[in-house]
Amino acid sequence: MATADDFKLIRDIHSTGGRRQVFGSREQKPFEDLVDLGWLKRSSVDSRATHYQITERGTSAAL
């Protein structure tokens, strides 16, 4: 179930172009929650960072 923080984060991601790069596993937790909701997808993972991209469902949630 989505929380107020989830909606705040997806709106922030949407307003800044729909993509986010995250460093460190602790910082990934809120983004992984949005992946579980179907609002974000992991577009790539490298040794230092994970890249996320907003989905259509995420765009709808952000509006």
Rank of each mutant, 00 (worst) to 15 (best):
M1T: 12
M1P: 11
M1V: 13
M1E: 12
M1H: 13
A2P: 15
A2I: 06
A2D: 03
A2F: 06
A2Y: 06
A2R: 04
T3Q: 06
T3A: 05
T3Y: 05
A4M: 11
A4L: 12
A4S: 10
A4N: 09
A4Y: 10
D5M: 11
D5Q: 11
D5Y: 08
D5V: 07
D5E: 13
D5H: 09
D6P: 05
D6L: 10
D6V: 05
D6C: 08
F7C: 07
F7L: 09
F7T: 04
F7E: 04
K8M: 10
K8Q: 10
K8G: 06
K8Y: 08
K8H: 08
L9N: 04
L9C: 05
L9Q: 03
L9P: 01
I10G: 00
I10P: 01
I10K: 00
I10C: 02
I10T: 01
I10L: 06
I10H: 00
R11E: 05
R11T: 07
R11G: 05
D12K: 09
D12L: 12
D12I: 09
D12M: 10
I13M: 04
I13Q: 01
I13A: 00
I13P: 01
I13L: 05
H14A: 10
H14Q: 09
H14G: 03
H14N: 06
H14V: 07
S15W: 09
S15R: 14
S15H: 11
T16I: 06
T16V: 06
T16D: 08
T16W: 07
G17S: 06
G17N: 07
G17Y: 04
G17V: 03
G18A: 02
G18W: 02
G18F: 02
R19A: 11
R19T: 13
R19I: 12
R19V: 13
R20L: 08
R20C: 13
R20M: 08
R20K: 08
Q21A: 14
Q21W: 15
Q21G: 07
Q21F: 10
Q21H: 11
Q21E: 14
Q21M: 14
V22S: 04
V22N: 03
F23E: 11
F23I: 13
F23S: 13
F23V: 13
F23Y: 11
G24L: 09
G24D: 11
G24S: 08
S25W: 11
S25D: 14
S25V: 13
S25Q: 13
S25L: 08
R26I: 14
R26T: 15
R26K: 14
R26F: 13
R26A: 15
R26L: 14
E27D: 13
E27Q: 12
E27A: 14
E27P: 08
Q28L: 11
Q28W: 05
Q28M: 09
Q28I: 09
Q28V: 07
K29R: 11
K29E: 08
K29Y: 05
K29C: 06
P30E: 06
P30N: 06
P30T: 05
P30L: 06
P30R: 10
P30K: 09
P30I: 07
P30G: 05
F31N: 01
F31Q: 01
F31E: 02
F31G: 00
F31M: 05
F31W: 04
F31L: 06
E32C: 06
E32D: 11
E32N: 09
E32Y: 04
E32P: 01
E32I: 07
E32T: 07
D33N: 14
D33L: 15
D33S: 13
L34I: 02
L34N: 01
L34M: 03
L34V: 02
V35R: 03
V35A: 04
V35H: 03
V35Q: 02
D36N: 14
D36I: 14
D36L: 15
D36R: 14
L37P: 00
L37Y: 05
L37A: 03
L37K: 06
G38I: 02
G38A: 04
G38T: 03
G38W: 03
G38M: 05
G38H: 04
W39L: 02
W39P: 01
W39N: 00
W39Y: 03
L40P: 00
L40T: 02
L40N: 00
L40G: 00
L40F: 00
L40I: 05
K41Y: 15
K41M: 14
K41R: 13
K41L: 14
K41S: 12
R42Q: 06
R42V: 15
R42G: 04
R42C: 07
R42F: 05
S43G: 10
S43Q: 12
S43L: 15
S43K: 10
S44V: 13
S44E: 11
S44A: 13
S44W: 15
S44R: 14
S44K: 14
S44I: 12
S44Q: 13
V45M: 10
V45P: 06
V45N: 08
D46N: 11
D46C: 10
D46W: 03
D46K: 06
S47M: 10
S47P: 11
S47I: 10
S47Q: 11
S47Y: 09
S47F: 10
S47L: 11
R48Q: 14
R48P: 07
R48S: 13
R48A: 13
R48Y: 13
R48D: 14
R48V: 14
A49M: 12
A49E: 10
A49H: 09
A49Y: 12
A49W: 14
A49T: 11
T50W: 08
T50H: 07
T50P: 05
T50A: 11
T50Q: 06
T50R: 08
T50K: 07
H51D: 11
H51L: 15
H51Y: 14
H51V: 15
H51E: 15
Y52H: 00
Y52T: 00
Y52R: 01
Y52S: 01
Y52K: 01
Y52F: 04
Q53T: 12
Q53Y: 11
Q53R: 08
Q53I: 14
Q53D: 08
Q53N: 07
Q53M: 12
I54N: 01
I54E: 02
I54W: 00
I54Q: 02
T55F: 01
T55L: 03
T55E: 02
T55R: 01
T55G: 01
T55P: 00
T55S: 04
T55Q: 02
E56G: 07
E56T: 10
E56A: 12
E56R: 09
E56W: 09
R57Y: 09
R57A: 15
G58A: 01
G58H: 01
G58M: 00
G58Q: 01
T59P: 01
T59I: 15
T59A: 08
T59K: 11
S60M: 14
S60P: 02
S60Q: 15
A61I: 08
A61Y: 05
A62V: 05
A62R: 02
A62N: 02
L63K: 08
L63Y: 06
L63T: 08
L63D: 04
